[in-house]
């Protein structure tokens, strides 16, 4: 009989844990990057003082609030306002003018986490005179992140950085126009979320959300394996009108999508793609 190494045992227990999460709660992480999941769950195991993934499995199967904590650990909460300013600048110049030609554009921000990208988009739309007639859907699988996104209250430490981002992104006003300071936090202007609908949605397992003119899904696909990336791009393709825009994170692409032929590249460095019109080559 062979003796499995500690790493082999760990990986077996990881697979079983992911199976338990799926069967017990319906969240499917089996097609996420293994290295990513392993790191996050090892962290979860350690902060809970557990010795193995089998113990994590036991804990989350019998304790729903611990399962919620685990979900929080597996969702990527690192985000910022106007992250990759050059992306927003290009969006403003090359995509917004075309969105303006629709009477009531709809935008889906998939994997919106704690909302920083939602408010960035809303600010940009307001400055372009488009916010009032645009409907934004902001979704994430992490309930706690969505709650935070709805509140729009953030730590003040980051405002300096966000202000620089905003200016580089072609901001037309003063960034301080969009928030007020309360103690050591900032509250984003609630008017910005007037047309934002926040909702729980899981890209891995849930069906099409809405038919929209633009989908923004940034730094989410990098955590999926190629098969899952393909599936999610299919979902996006079904959700976009012909001529609609798909924007991804700086290191993401349509390379692993069977639908890549349905898109043309608007800006490859900024990862802005457009779904072709019917019959368009």
């Amino acid at each position: 009989m062979k003796t499995p190494s500690p790493d082999e045992i760990n990986k077996i227990e990881l697979d079983l844990l992911l199976e338990a999460v799926y069967k017990g709660y319906g969240f499917d992480f089996r097609n996420y990057s293994k290295a990513h999941i392993l790191r996050r769950l090892t962290y979860f195991q350690n902060v809970n003082g557990l010795q193995s993934f089998s113990q994590v499995q036991d804990l989350i199967l019998h304790n729903k609030s611990k399962m919620k904590e685990l979900l929080g650990e597996l969702s990527i909460k690192v985000t910022e306002m106007f992250r990759d300013p050059a992306f927003y600048l290009t969006l403003r110049k090359r995509v917004i003018p075309l969105l303006k030609t629709y009477p009531f554009p709809k935008i889906w921000i998939a994997g919106c986490s704690t909302g920083e990208e939602v408010y960035s988009m809303a600010i940009l739309l307001r400055e372009e005179g488009l916010l009032k007639r645009t409907q934004i859907f902001a979704t994430d699988f992490n309930e706690k992140a969505i709650e935070k996104a709805k509140k729009g209250v953030y730590s003040i430490d980051k405002i300096k950085h966000y202000t620089v981002n905003y200016q580089k992104a072609g901001g037309k006003n003063s960034f301080s126009d969009y928030y007020r300071v309360i103690d050591n936090r900032v509250e984003i202007d609630p008017g910005l979320r007037q047309n934002v609908q926040f909702a729980l949605h899981n890209l891995v397992s849930d069906a099409k959300f809405e038919t929209v003119n633009m989908i923004s899904c940034r730094n989410v696909l990098i955590y999926f394996n190629k098969e899952l990336q393909d599936r999610v791009i299919n979902l996006f393709t079904d959700s976009l009108i012909n001529g609609g825009y798909l924007v991804l994170g700086m290191k993401e692409s349509l390379l692993f999508s069977s639908k890549s032929g349905l898109y043309k590249t608007i800006d490859n460095d900024r990862k802005i793609f457009q779904k072709k019109l019917l019959g368009e080559k």
Binding site: S33, K34, A35, H36, I76, V78, N219, I222, Y223, K251
Partner: peptide
């Protein structure tokens, strides 16, 4: 601004984590 992970099949995953 990205972490680099090595997967078992020697593929690379990039990450924006903390």
């Amino acid at each position: 601004n990205f972490h680099v992970f090595i997967e078992e099949d020697l593929s690379i995953t990039l990450s924006v984590e903390e």
